[in-house]
Design a protein around this nucleic acid. Structure first.
Length: 501
RNA sequence: GCCUCGGUAGCUCAAUUGGCAGAGCAGUUGACUCUUAAUCAAUUGGUUGUGGGUUCGAGUCCCUCCCGGGGUACCA
């Protein structure tokens, strides 16, 4: 069967009711309907969440609870179920002599994974488990597929990423991670709002993708009859807003880069960029430091973050205690590669870099050799936060030159957990110098120059500090995840149309 | 892109040198009205990712392709 847009529709993908387990569940669904019960047509208003009910236990208290059935223990004429919603889990207890023969028979149509609502009274079992004695119940939704295994959870990484709902259902720690990610975003916003920053939304579809040097995704607008690009950075539009008089702006949103996928890279990722008029990169240092500490304290309640391996052993501890170290780029390089690193001949630098274990491609320029030493040998060792300042001018064409060392620019790269987390600049606001650098970057292709942005600068942009912060990497650091895929709900995977997903 | 490891029942995992593809959970049937990884008895369930090859015989060895993990390259 051919679908409209040219991709092939695989009937086996979603409709493999050849599976015996599904067949049994469908038979139960039919049996319910034959009894006049449609398990997809009920509204139910719980008095509280399952976990909340447990926390507010009172013998004999009447409650109405709804959730998914996650376990059952069948005693014949009575049955225990575990009911789970976002707030937690509670045990419910159904008895044949309370519900009656007919109703108890309906109750037995329930399977693991089904949604139900119960009304009843709370009691404590002999084993001390807070439970609800069911007076009445209603089936809220039947699950036609069985849930993952109850004890080991869902382990297959591919299924976990492709069918994240199963991962969330089966693995509580995964759900916790994503709830915490949501809290991180909330606290970032709250912090910036408290400092008078205005949240804005700028175009994701751009005629000229600027603000970074990454490969963009291309798409096409039919009515306009032109190609547009998915944005690779937020920068150029936020600076237009500085020109317009929004002195403190930020945007928290998705960037798209058409590049390799790895443990640290997803093609779409969440970026925070914030600009503060009349500030500079040192203003942004204070901002980043305060913000990350605020988020850690608010979300985790601590500034000491432990990362653990699969066995639960602590593999590293990140200490966010202030003040954070501030070190010039060249100092770090000299400490690693020798105090005379910047004095020796380029060929000698190349030789030493290889001796230190950095892979140096033949076409690397001299500054790229140094950068390779930094990226491969120094950055991975920066676990506690460090502001790496005064980067070489060649690396960052869009920042202001340092007054005290004209070969460097007024920027920092904040490294935590062995990764770049947040770069910040004293933003370039000289329209002539900016034009020169953009033209250089465009390499003789004038269609790559965002002329409207340059016009905006010519109207005058206030001096400003600007920063970007990779939210996904921040979450990896704060939540102890080694892979970006474990902090993104639906990470990019290659389509697999023939799978069961 | 390259290197490397992996893909076995719905889920979690076994399978010795190439020799009958197995267990737990879930499911089904039965017993049990305070269990909680409930228990006990019986039982269903497989195109071993795909396609090919070697062999009397392939989950296992060889080749192809697909998907995934890790590394590497690319990458503000």
């Amino acid at each position: 069967m051919r679908w409209r847009h040219g991709w092939v529709f695989h009937p086996g993908a979603a409709m493999d009711d050849t599976n015996a387990l599904m067949g049994q569940r469908k038979a139960k669904l039919d049996s319910l309907r034959a009894r006049g019960i449609d398990p997809f047509r009920n509204r139910f208003t719980p008095t509280e969440g399952c976990g909340e009910a447990r926390a507010r236990y009172a013998e004999g208290r009447e409650v109405a609870l709804a959730g998914r059935i996650t376990a059952h223990r069948d005693m014949g004429k009575s049955m225990f179920l575990d009911l789970k919603d976002q707030s937690g889990r509670i045990q419910i207890y159904a008895q044949k002599n309370v519900l009656g023969d007919e109703s108890f028979e309906v109750f037995r149509h329930l399977d693991l994974g089904d949604f139900m609502g119960v009304r009843g009274t709370m009691f404590m079992t002999r084993m001390g488990e807070i439970s609800v004695k069911v007076q009445s119940f209603v089936i809220l939704a039947k699950a036609l597929r069985p849930p993952p295994e109850k004890w080991h959870g869902l382990a297959d990484t591919e299924t976990r990423y492709r069918q994240r709902y199963l991962d969330l259902m089966a693995n509580d720690e995964v759900k916790r991670t994503f709830l915490l990610r949501s809290a991180v975003l909330r606290e970032v916003r709250q912090f910036l709002h408290a400092r008078g920053f205005v949240e804005v939304e700028t175009p994701m579809m751009q005629a000229i993708p600027g603000g970074a040097a990454a490969q963009p995704f291309v798409t096409h607008h039919n009515a306009l009859g032109c190609d547009v690009y998915l944005r690779i950075a937020l920068e150029l539009y936020l600076k237009r807003l500085l020109v317009g008089g929004l002195d403190r702006v930020f945007e928290l949103g998705r960037n798209f880069r058409n590049e390799g996928i790895s443990r640290r890279h997803n093609p779409e990722f969440t970026m925070l960029e914030a600009y503060q008029a009349y500030g500079d990169y040192e203003t942004m240092m204070e901002l980043v430091e305060s913000m990350v500490c605020h988020v850690a304290q608010a979300v985790l309640g601590t500034l000491h973050i432990e990362h653990k391996d699969a066995q639960g052993n602590v593999t590293r501890t990140i200490r966010l205690d202030r003040p954070w170290r501030r070190v010039p780029y060249k100092t770090l390089v000299r400490d690693k590669a020798g105090p005379d690193w910047f004095e020796v001949a380029p060929a000698e630098r190349r030789r030493r870099a290889v001796a230190l274990g950095a892979e140096i491609a033949a076409e690397y320029a001299d500054f790229e050799v140094t950068q390779a030493v930094f990226e491969k040998l120094i950055e991975p060792t920066l676990i506690d936060p460090v502001f790496v300042t005064h980067a070489p001018k060649e690396l960052i064409p869009l920042a202001k030159t340092s007054a005290d060392d004209p070969s460097t620019v007024d920027v920092f790269e904040c490294c935590i957990n062995g990764q770049e987390i947040a770069p910040a600049y004293s933003e370039q606001n000289d329209p002539l110098e900016q034009r020169e650098r953009l033209e250089h970057q465009a390499g003789g292709e004038p269609q790559k120059i965002d002329e409207d942005f340059l016009v905006a600068l010519e109207h005058g942009m206030p001096p400003a500090g600007g920063m970007g912060l990779g939210i996904d990497r921040l979450c990896m650091m704060l939540l102890g995840q080694d892979s970006i895929r474990d902090v993104i709900l639906f990470p990019q995977l290659k389509p697999k149309p023939s799978s069961g997903a």
